[in-house]
Design a protein around this nucleic acid. Structure first.
Lengths: 190, 190
DNA sequence: CCAATTACAGACACATTGTTCAATTGTGTT
DNA sequence: AACACAATTGAACAATGTGTCTGTAATTGG
């Protein structure tokens, strides 16, 4: 394995190379999914020599990993800023759900490649973990005998799958409707 | 692509070859996950010539799909036989759920590698698709305004995620309890 | 301007995939 | 038991992709 400078590049060329690679990754994942993408393809799309790739990342996963941190940070930021905007007297639990759904609505294409059928495992996994954390934060403390963890996972799985169904619909229902559907279906969890 | 005889083999040799391959797949997935397994490895483990593999399956995915198809068929069979036994006024849907959970219980290690953290994308995807099919078959026809597809996906996501939580627990609740939990949580879908 | 860093194309060894083929072995059938 | 046929085998093959290494050219920061 070769030594990789994983830190923030000080050189403009390195900077350009990396952003080009990340853009290429985003595009290609959106178009063709994760598995079918080769390093060849990434480099061609990014207009980068293939050997240059290995100067920055040891493999495909590392590239994804790098980009994903940023993405997740942004998702959380956006979701959070939406959350604060919702009025304080709407004290219903799982307020973030509408925010998340609305966000998925605006960035439909991105979400399709994120959680849709063709995305990669790492991405889906991360996204699910994020939703699990969000739900774990907001779910009222369990009163019944059903394990809270179980409920959280159950709810998160349902939400993610519902979302991934939704973003692939051609003429989807509105974000408000979807939120209503989800809350209606999930009322047993309250 | 070569022509594959996908039908039930009439020849014992073909029968043996296929079961050997499926056993090898099960073992190897349990040991090493999905991604790192090559067709080489499968054939060595199954004691099969590499070219023989391609006489039966076009690729790794197809082998997995075949195994999952069997599982699906068996779960359906179980569910059906249960259904006849249950009294006519207990028209409970989703009979297969207990079968699936019990199966996951018996083959805990396999399921951990199948749907747990270490598995690959393809496996999870295929598994989820199977659950979606099973649910789609058994879910009562929708009466409300909520789209049936949405309900199916919602339910499938919840079940799969609950399962994947369960198989990673150290001291898990019993299969019966888990089934009860699932039905309790999902009652809004009925 | 200069030294250091980065990019590049090309070539290399290596692994994996999927196909083909002739020879051999096992099977179902009569 | 003998037959025709289907399955298996190992070897060889092209094609593709990966990761590494080289010498050279181009950009960069100082």
């Amino acid at each position: 394995m070769r030594k990789i400078n994983a830190a923030v590049p000080t050189d403009r060329r390195a900077e350009r190379t990396r952003t080009a690679l990340r853009e290429a990754l985003k595009d290609l994942v959106t178009e063709r999914g994760w598995d079918s993408i080769g390093i060849q393809d990434l480099c061609e799309r990014a207009n980068i020599g293939r050997s240059t790739f290995y100067l920055h990342y040891p493999n495909k996963d590392a590239l994804l990993q790098g980009g994903l941190d940023d993405l997740q940070a942004e998702l959380r930021r956006q979701a959070h800023s939406r959350l604060v905007k919702t009025s304080a007297h709407e004290k219903a639990a799982l307020q973030f759900v509408y925010g998340l759904i609305a966000h998925a609505h605006e960035q439909r294409k991105l979400f399709r490649s994120l959680i849709g059928r063709r995305s990669g495992y790492v991405v889906q996994q991360r996204f699910r973990e994020m939703v699990i954390r969000l739900i774990a934060d907001e779910l009222p403390v369990a009163t019944e005998k059903i394990s809270r963890d179980a409920t959280v996972r159950w709810l998160a799985g349902a939400l993610v799958e519902l979302l991934s169904w939704w973003v692939e619909q051609k003429t989807p229902v509105s974000p408000e409707e979807l939120t209503a559907i989800f809350k209606e279906l999930s009322q047993s969890a309250r």
